[in-house]
Every structure is written in C-alpha cells, then in structure tokens.
Computed example of a mutant assay.
Amino acid sequence: MSGPVVVGVDGSPSALAAVDAAAREALLRGAELHVVHAFLWPALHVPPGASALGPPGGGVRESVEHLLREAVDRARSAAPGVRATSAVMPGEAVAALEAESRTAQLMVVGRSGSGGVREVLLGSAAVHLAAHGHCPVMVVRGRTDPEGPVLVAVDGSPRERGAIAFAFAEASIRGGELVALHTWSAWGDHGAHRPGRPGELVDTIGDADRQRAAEERLLAEALAGHRERYPEVAVRPRVVRGRTRPTLIEASGHAQLIVVGARGRGGFAGLLLGSVSQAVLHHADCPVAVVRSGLWDDGADL
C-alpha cells in the first residue's frame, strides 16, 4: 500500500508519543512521514501575526510553526533517516485528519489530545478516525516502548480479513512473531451449544473438547491464506476459552502492537466500532491498530 504515514499533532504529550511511533512506522515501511496540524483559527479570522501588545514571535502562526518544527525534529531523532514533511491543514482536527487518511497508508494518532480529561478517556479524533478513516489507524497508547509479538484478534468474521492481512504484514516488516488470538465461550457463542439445544451450557468434557477442536479449525482457516503469503512470519495460534475483551487486554501487556477489526461478528448496524474494538482502544497496554473492513487489500504489500 502506497502513500505516507500521517501523524496528527497538537502539542500534547500524547501527540508527541504518536510522532515517535509514526516515525518508526514510516522508517520500517520506507515511507515518508507527514506531520500535520489542524488549524482552525484562519477560518475564524484570527490575525496570524503577533499582537502589538505582545512579544515578537508570539503570534498564532509562529506558535504553529514552532509546534511543527518540534514534531519533525522529534521524528528525526526517534527514527534517524526518516523523510519527514509537515503541513498546516485548515479546519477542525477530526475532519482534517480524515481527509488526510484518504491518501495515507497509515494514520497515527495519540490516545487523547490537548483536551483529554483522563488517561482512560480516548480522544474524539482517535475514536472518529478508527471508525471513519480511509486507511488503517494506529492509536498510540500503553507502554512507551513496547516489545513482544504483533497480536491480532480473530473471531472468524469475514470483516476481519483485512485486519489479519495487516497484522501479517506488520509482523513481516518488524521481523517478529505474530500471535493470533481467538476466544470462545461455553454459552452458545459461535455455535458453542449442543446441537438441538440452543443456548445450553457446554457442560461436559466431551462437549468442551469438541467445541475447542471446532474453534481451532476456525482459527486455522482464518489464517490459512495469509500464512502462505507470509511464510517468513512465525505464527503462534492461541485458542482461549474465556471472555474476549479481558483476554485481549491482558495479552496486550506482552505485545508490541494489537490489531483489531472495526467491527466483528457481534456488531450492531448502528455502531461505528464494536465493543471489543472500543474496549481495546481504551484499555490496551500497547498501541492499537484498527483496520476497517475493505480498507486493506489482502494482496497488498506495506
């Protein structure tokens, strides 16, 4: 997939952490890093220069230029050799970043912007882009320098095919392991009930063993074509009996990146992001990449 890696900055610590991650992502891909700042003041007709009553260099334009220079310098320090450009985008931040995502191969944002209230609250730009962006969106959160495998959530939904393909490509360029995690429940999820008795708890050893075997086949089938395309990627399938959200969040503590689809098997038509995606975006201990269905070509290279 061509295009730059784009990162949005607003001067917040979260955005600066996103610059570090975006610079490394761009260098891994051999792509250009494009640092953007959404600038609403021109639309409000605020004078760009310094006030006659204030110090020289204290105007809006100077502040924005300083913010962008700082971000570009930080990017080059985090990933020496990265090609970095910057631009001011007129308009509101969410709309400007969504427009930039149309030509990007990856959009990177911090977990919250300058208006964030608490660490657990996710910024509106991150949520909106994860749901509406035109390329995969990486939200930088959790550990500052995460290590470990790439982790991908697999539930068997056709909509997650792009997320799996993206996770394989990420593991390939990072030279790391890919952990494919699939969870199943004893309560009728994914057909986990006894035939003829819907919803009944899988309560015998034989039932549980048969269901686990079925879930293992589902995971193997979801990974099959991708494993042939990326033979260099070491894949560790994990089938876990338990609740999806806490299992993924716990596993994120040992990963360098977690990849999820925007919506999975249980999504409602009116929801922009599924409950699993929302939970991981808010609570994961490493960066999260959200890949909407249809955005990632299974045959594309990074």
Rank of each mutant, 00 (worst) to 15 (best):
V179W: 10
H282A: 15
I249H: 09
P90T: 12
H37F: 08
D73L: 07
G3N: 03
W41N: 03
S114H: 11
T85Y: 01
G113A: 05
T204R: 08
L106W: 02
E92N: 00
S293I: 03
A78Y: 04
V140A: 10
E221C: 01
R212K: 15
F268W: 15
F268C: 06
R241E: 15
T244H: 05
R227S: 12
V291I: 14
P56V: 12
F268T: 12
G57H: 08
V9K: 02
V179Q: 11
R29E: 02
F166T: 10
H132R: 14
H66G: 13
L273T: 11
T85A: 11
H128I: 04
L178G: 01
H134G: 09
S101T: 08
A23N: 13
A126Q: 05
V140C: 08
D301R: 15
G162Q: 06
V259I: 05
G115C: 03
A26G: 13
R118C: 00
L271W: 11
A95N: 10
S86I: 01
R143C: 08
L44W: 14
E70S: 14
E232M: 09
V137F: 03
P13V: 02
A269N: 01
A99E: 02
V117N: 03
P237E: 07
D298K: 12
E62V: 01
R229Q: 15
V290S: 07
R69T: 13
F166C: 09
S86L: 02
V7E: 09
Q211P: 04
S124Q: 09
L273E: 11
W41G: 04
V5Q: 03
C135P: 11
Y230S: 10
P287M: 00
A38D: 12
P146C: 06
G196C: 07
A220F: 03
A186V: 13
H193R: 04
L33D: 05
E62Q: 14
R143I: 06
A169K: 09
V290H: 03
M89R: 15
L44F: 03
T85Q: 02
L122W: 03
A234W: 01
V150W: 08
G253I: 01
A21L: 04
P42V: 06
S114V: 13
H190T: 12
T244L: 10
V127L: 14
R243G: 08
A43T: 12
L271M: 15
R241F: 05
A22G: 14
